[in-house]
Write a protein that binds this DNA or RNA. Structure first.
Lengths: 199, 199
DNA sequence: TAGATTTGTAACCATGTGGTCACATATTTT
DNA sequence: AAAATATGTGACCACATGGTTACAAATCTA
């Protein structure tokens, strides 16, 4: 029998990732990972330190919002920049299954094992919202809309529709996008009031 | 030993409810319910038809948005009515743990057992959004914001904060409420355009 | 080549799960 | 009172879980 630690480590980690992406946090277990990797579970403990170690590695290696990084260097001074940035965020959210499942995971538990992973992914997510912080009037509305986008993204895995909205159609997601853009516009086009009090 | 079927049925159902409310969907299992009720699990199968039967009963008896029903009879013609209705919805969402956990459940699975429960709770939730359907321009923005509200409500169970927002403070939730009200205003105050095209 | 070390496996453990069973004991019915 | 039925229990089943152990086999080192 051939022996290659690097290769088996890779098999284990990839199996862990694909289980998480395809079947969600509940499907991620030592037995399931070992079975999928076709390897003894002992090795998961030996090479990674169990599930906790795998989560830690994911925290370090995971690419959660890498598509945002390029944009984040820009100034984001204008309303159009802000809209472009928001659209990049919703696109990332829609397409990155790994990010989706980690966000789902945060709704289920928060313990020793997951803490580091969540801390890191939240840090990445925070970069998006750092922008809207500058516009305190828009801030909470913006958070709600992105939060809603996350909610519907997660919901769409098991539900075809939300009330009257078809969550399987491209058109619906475009409408959500448009709603975000329009809200950004409305908050910026409103008649300037006398003070910074924008509640 | 005393025997009282009605009383034990009550004990079982109440144990099921409190487990769901306090510990979430993952904690709801035949063994856990029987243990909490202090009763043999056989009786759960005999009297309810297992977990599936309990979910069915919850679907029929559960009061998910009962606080909304009174308001729903009103006309909701004015913007103020719509805002009042939205605020009643967010309040209900914040306070009804049972509703929260069912919404959380919908993000985890959707099978034979849960289908009826979700169908019913969604029907109730649909009543809220029937109102915003009339204003197609606002519709998706409104859905996003309520969805975001749901998201943050569920998130707050295991996370103290989201980015910079403290999810444990009353003040944050008031700001979210205000953001919704303001968005409703902005969408209604915008200069009327020539057609119904409001994308 | 011989010995030490790394890599890998399969069996095993305690525990928990949903589900079924035979049985005992109340309660009703005849 | 006797028989039938409703109610309740605890043991049991097969299976899955996370975690550990003892051992085999490949690879590295001397």
């Amino acid at each position: 029998m051939k022996k290659d630690r690097a290769a088996t480590e890779e098999k284990i980690y990839e199996s862990f990732l694909s289980l998480l992406e395809e079947n969600g946090p509940q499907a991620v277990g030592i037995n399931a990972i070992a079975k999928k990797a076709g390897v003894s579970k002992e090795l998961i403990y030996r090479y990674f330190g169990g599930l906790e170690g795998l989560l830690l590695q994911l925290a370090k290696k995971g690419d959660f919002f890498k598509s945002m990084l390029a944009l984040h260097d820009k100034d984001l001074a204008t309303v159009e920049d802000l809209k472009e940035f928001a659209m990049a965020g919703t696109k990332e959210l829609r397409e990155n299954k790994l990010t989706q499942e980690i966000l789902r995971w945060q709704l289920l538990e928060n313990n020793e094992a997951t803490r580091d992973l969540f801390k890191y992914s939240n840090k990445e997510m925070g970069k998006i919202f750092a922008i809207s912080d500058k516009n305190s009037s828009l801030n909470h509305a913006f958070q709600l809309m992105i939060g809603g986008y996350v909610y519907f993204t997660l919901l769409s895995k098991f539900n075809k529709k939300f009330i009257t909205t078809d969550l399987t159609s491209q058109e619906s997601w475009e409408k959500f996008d448009k709603a975000i853009e329009k809200t950004i516009d409305l908050f910026n086009q409103e008649p300037r009031r006398k003070s910074t009090d924008a509640n």
